[in-house]
Design a protein around this nucleic acid. Structure first.
Lengths: 192, 192
DNA sequence: TTTTTTCATTGATTTTTATCAATGTAATTT
DNA sequence: AAATTACATTGATAAAAATCAATGAAAAAA
């Protein structure tokens, strides 16, 4: 149940068994069915979710009811509305399950307690956020300086498992495109 | 000379005078003239720069010699190619001074030593990267889900000092637009 | 000061992408 | 099993943004 979380943690910051036990007491497992919300716009984000299994998406909904996907998450990733989590302001987007999912939740109080008492947890957090920052930097650079085709190839090589598991129109949304446009980009690529 | 850096640090993590002295030994001041490079594509990024004074930009250059601006930095901000800094791989972009600038550099060895020996520095680093992550998240969300006009208004309200100090075509580049398009967006706004 | 260079704007045109509409298929629900 | 819904594709058209070209003003360099 906790396997992936600690595998991940140990890869970044090696832990003793007793440290693992200590951290376990702060984790809350949670299962989500497909389409079930982890977080709804307007609610305060009460926890960070580490994904043990399944796939989730973070997204906002525009005036016309269209979803704009901000972030995907699969096994081994962390998902949350970090701004809402840190400030306790209402979330500006939704998070739900694309597939049935199993999560390890870290509540705000757990997060703060771990930061206070376990320096390795702060290091883990720092490395996680650094990784997330670098990933987002790549995504942003790709958006402002590459063609659609390059961006799509980029995405598929970086996240092949997501391409397999997630419907195309969600990837289009993630890229800031309409589904029609992405479909045409793909057609052009196939012809080559 | 170190005022802004420590003002910033203390706002995030309060320091004792002796801790300040300790940290000072790891900092290297540096001045840059306008147009001078802090980092050139292909070189390894050897330090993180805290900006005491002036303005800088991080950018890549495409096949046609056009600059794509990835990031601006002014007083109180940090600028670097974090990926290159952390991995010691060649930088994929350039950083130079838009205005004469004064920086506080933290070398890789200084960074690592401070992380090891001063927990408050790790906290400072964590908070910095978290702030940068949230700022980039805002920027990304704005790009994939807002109109050009909204994005420009967004930028001007968020970073009015940059609008004052930096030529428009650089802001266009930062937004992933041509200067002509930004000029037209502005015209439309003025007419209202 | 004079000369260059940088910069912002505007117009005409082309290219790119979104929108609207329709279709067939696959997946899900009843 | 039948009906409904979700999904990807394609075509026609509209809207948005890029490109090419020219101009004048401001800033920087000579």
């Amino acid at each position: 149940m906790y396997e992936l979380f600690f595998q991940n943690f140990n890869k970044k910051v090696p832990l003793t068994t007793s440290e693992e036990e200590q951290i376990k007491r702060y984790l809350t497992p949670k299962k989500l069915r497909k389409k079930q919300y982890l977080l709804q716009e307007g609610d305060v984000c009460k926890s960070i979710a580490f994904i043990e299994k399944g796939a989730l998406k973070a997204y906002s909904v525009d005036e016309n009811g269209n979803e704009r996907i901000i972030q995907f998450g699969v096994e081994g990733w962390v998902i949350s509305d970090l701004y809402s989590f840190l400030t306790s302001e209402p979330a500006t987007y939704n998070i739900d399950a694309i597939e049935d999912a199993e999560l390890m939740l870290i509540s705000k109080s757990a997060h703060e307690a771990l930061l206070q008492h376990l320096p390795k947890y702060e290091t883990f957090t720092r490395l996680n956020i650094t990784g997330a920052y670098l990933a987002m930097q790549r995504r942003l650079t790709s958006i402002i300086s590459s063609s659609l085709e390059e961006r799509y190839v980029n995405f598929t090589t970086l996240y092949p498992e997501i391409v397999q598991r997630v419907p195309q129109h969600m990837i289009a949304s993630y890229m800031g495109l309409t589904p029609e446009t992405l479909s045409r980009v793909r057609q052009k690529m196939i012809r080559k």
